[in-house]
Design a protein around this nucleic acid. Structure first.
Lengths: 224, 224
DNA sequence: TCAGTTTGTTCATATTCAGTTCATATTTGA
DNA sequence: TCAAATATGAACTGAATATGAACAAACTGA
């Protein structure tokens, strides 16, 4: 069951949002201000948060910042008209998308679904990073219109890195995870696969990510 | 607030465990069988699960496996005497620790705390000082919007200093801690790394801390 | 079955850069 | 003021990584 936190001090809007989302089969946890919203975040396992900017006690910026710091979930912000300047600020602190009041409920629902789709490790076999999509069932990497099938090892390597963006993997860890603990071969094999992956990522333009070398440690996937 | 799931079909044991854990200030979410436990996992944000092996509908193995697949939390299993063979199986699927019935509630509490500590410590790869944040998994230093990746030695040096703010480290101590006791090189190497760190900290504005020289002794991290 | 292709690994070599050293300047405290 | 400690800039070096190519193994389709 997907659970969504709706934080808005205006009861009407709160109910409106909840109504439409419930119709989609989501379970809604409601909060009337920022403090309450944070309390609910701590209590419930939340998949996505819809956050109004203007709220008593703790405003939407503050709340979103805290959510992003402690949870790895998408946040949809609700802004009033004329707060457009703030939008940037919102994205900086990790908002994923926003709607402007008054908004079309259908559009809001669409955005929520898009965010869930984007964030979801769809059936654990599809993950996203930057502009690329990795489909494990097809060993396929795609970006925009182009897509390409990768050799098994290369795919697994990329998939592993992308499954924890930012995390540094040592060669040893990668070998354990992909080749298995009893692999006898050379650690440098990883380097070669990394090189080939980089070539592919270069040929695909606008991938929005790269594999970075952490000298002395290993590799990591990084947005760019 | 730390929230713990207690899954046991025996009401007495469930209450016993809950009682002792509540006394420690934890919030307890209770479940009487595996299915219910999973439902609670989905509903609440759980920090740790205490799981009995023998449960109706979905046994402890199954439950633990699912928990481990979808959540990154420690699981303490409760086994009946004579299930010792199964213990291994339990560890295979990712149990972190177990107690054997009948158990000493004090011991159970101790194990829960140890698990929380262990998991926290492992999450202790991030420390803060002033306005900077140091993420050891990424070798990353960030302050506000900007962040930067440091070379290994520089990072370890900064991390060491910041992990005990105010404490004076001699060059010798730093070398022992970072380079190892068998380092043969020059003590002055520390100075150079300190210098480079200071350059970085200067370029980052508003870091809220500095590395101070204690003439004749060494260095320390200081708020400012 | 067999040539042709793809994938995975190894190896030899080129390149890079973090870490160190060193020479010199500056600061500090008595 | 002076000697000792520390800061600084720059050059060096070697270990780590990147790269190109060759080889081996597995797979493909006729």
């Amino acid at each position: 069951m997907i659970q969504i936190l709706v934080a808005d001090d205006d009861q009407h809007i709160r109910e409106l949002i909840s109504l439409y989302l419930e119709k989609q089969g989501f379970k809604i946890i409601k909060a009337a201000d920022g403090e309450e919203a944070w309390a609910k975040m701590e209590e419930f396992r939340i998949d996505l948060a819809v956050v109004d900017i203007m709220m008593p006690f703790k405003d939407g910026w503050e709340l979103t910042k805290e959510i992003k710091e402690y949870f790895d979930i998408p946040v949809l912000m609700v802004t009033a008209r004329g707060e457009s300047h703030d939008k940037l600020k919102g994205f900086d602190i990790g908002t994923d998308d926003y709607v402007v009041k008054p908004f079309d409920p259908q559009e809001m629902v669409a955005r929520v679904k898009a965010l869930l789709r984007r964030y979801r490790v769809e059936a654990n076999n599809v993950i996203y990073m930057g502009n690329i999509k990795l489909d494990r069932t097809k060993l396929e990497m795609s970006a925009g219109e182009t897509s390409e099938q990768l050799p098994l090892k290369e795919f697994e390597l990329l998939f592993t890195l992308v499954s924890s963006p930012g995390k540094i993997f040592t060669r040893d860890q990668l070998i354990q995870l992909i080749w298995g603990y009893d692999y006898e071969g050379d650690e440098r094999t990883v380097d070669v696969h990394i090189k080939r992956l980089r070539e592919r990522l270069n040929h695909m333009k606008n991938v929005g990510m790269e594999i970075k070398t952490i000298r002395g440690l290993g590799y990591r996937a990084e947005g760019c």
